[in-house]
Nucleic acid binder design. Structure first.
Lengths: 220, 220
DNA sequence: CTATCGTTCAATCAATCCGTTGATTGATTC
DNA sequence: GAATCAATCAACGGATTGATTGAACGATAG
């Protein structure tokens, strides 16, 4: 009993990692870190937590070796540790949730599909249409996230500024909107608004982090 | 505060799934279920838990929609729900652990690598060598697990019976041993024992569930 | 009806966890 | 050096909750 077998020890460590992603706030933190490195303050503001609470959750992610800080002047910038693997883990978690969990199906149906009845566009589809130049790629994340990396040739119009800057979008070809990931609502809202305005608009099935993790080209 | 956004609701559900796999015993249960369906009693005996405790853990996996029971006479047989996705999730978790967590690296180095200094064989390698017929595939799991499914052409000699039935193994070609998965020690012990006995023996990097989940051919 | 298998209950014990407060550390700026 | 800003830490309350076991309960087979 005192000393566990090697399998048990490994499972105990893996369980610690699973515990670390077992909280909604931490999943949201990871979603933001997947866009690029972020300060504690920045994360707290974006998610709506206190600084202290955000710091605590970051410590948990850090202990589980999912995120890592580096100091930059007086702020600490956190980023994913082993970005691609973390995104793959979150993707595997999301897939199982979407396939097995009724509650998620309900949310997807009641929110995403009523606002955006059309099927999302897959990465492969979008890649092909970028090559054809038969599509406008629209990044609706805030400007600072866009600046940290985005899809090749994408135009950045944050959701809040969409109606104001609508003239930037050509009307003669379809628009594909994307944002932070499969559960980020920005691209849903954007596609919905654009269709109301007469555009042929759809959204990418997931977001920038998944694109990057798939090894596809990105711009800075 | 009363009603969360759609993203928060989805993350809360995903966090529940993550919590469910956040316990070493449950990871071990999942490893066994990945071999095929199992009764509560059977799982309890294999893992070394009481029936009541095993049952409770299974309820948690069930609530998280990772496993599902069906009744067979007086026993309840549990199996993975969405087998391929669950195995993919565990694989993603394992990968991140192996890359990021020092404790796991220590165990791998101190147990697996001292017993089996050679690099494990990848699935692709093994597949090619099965086609060549240049290798003996050895399944060292218990007979009942072998009976529920195994790699094409594999010979089954449970680890406990290995020395007794050693004559079944041809000595003129390499042996590749496999078992339940990447953290199962059976194939490590087998490869180690076989090399002591003069065989050219190595082990597969993971096990039967991963082979099956990759869509490769299996026999029953 | 009895034996078997599993679930659930009640209880225990322990642990953990979340979020907050207020003090403190580190780094920068004036 | 003093002031300022960012983040962490220690500590706490409170709640939660989690693992585990034995006993009681339900379902099924023979």
């Amino acid at each position: 009993m005192s000393s566990l077998g090697p399998k048990q020890r490994i499972f105990a460590s893996l369980a610690d990692i699973a515990q670390a992603i077992g909280h909604a706030h931490r999943l949201e933190i990871l979603e933001h870190l997947a866009q690029g490195e972020r300060s504690v303050e920045d994360l707290a503001a974006r998610i709506g937590l206190t600084i202290a609470n955000t710091s605590r959750h970051l410590q948990i992610l850090r202990r589980a070796r999912l995120a890592e800080p580096r100091r930059d002047g007086k702020r600490m910038l956190y980023s994913l540790l082993g970005e691609t693997d973390v995104i793959a883990l979150l993707k595997a978690l999301g897939r199982i949730g979407e396939r097995n969990v009724a509650e998620i199906e309900v949310v997807m149906a009641s929110y995403f599909r009523t606002r955006d009845a059309l099927e999302p566009v897959s990465r492969q589809d979008l890649l092909a249409r970028i090559h054809d130049r038969s599509v406008t790629v629209l990044d609706v994340r805030p400007e600072d996230e866009f600046a940290q990396g985005h899809l090749p040739g994408a135009i950045n119009i944050p959701l809040a500024a969409l109606e104001r800057r609508i003239a930037l979008l050509p009307r003669d070809q379809p628009v594909i909107a994307y944002c932070r990931g499969p559960y980020c609502v920005l691209s849903v809202e954007a596609a919905s608004a654009l269709r109301r305005l007469g555009f042929d608009a759809r959204r990418l099935e997931d977001g920038y982090p998944e694109w990057k993790a798939a090894g596809l080209q990105v711009e800075t």
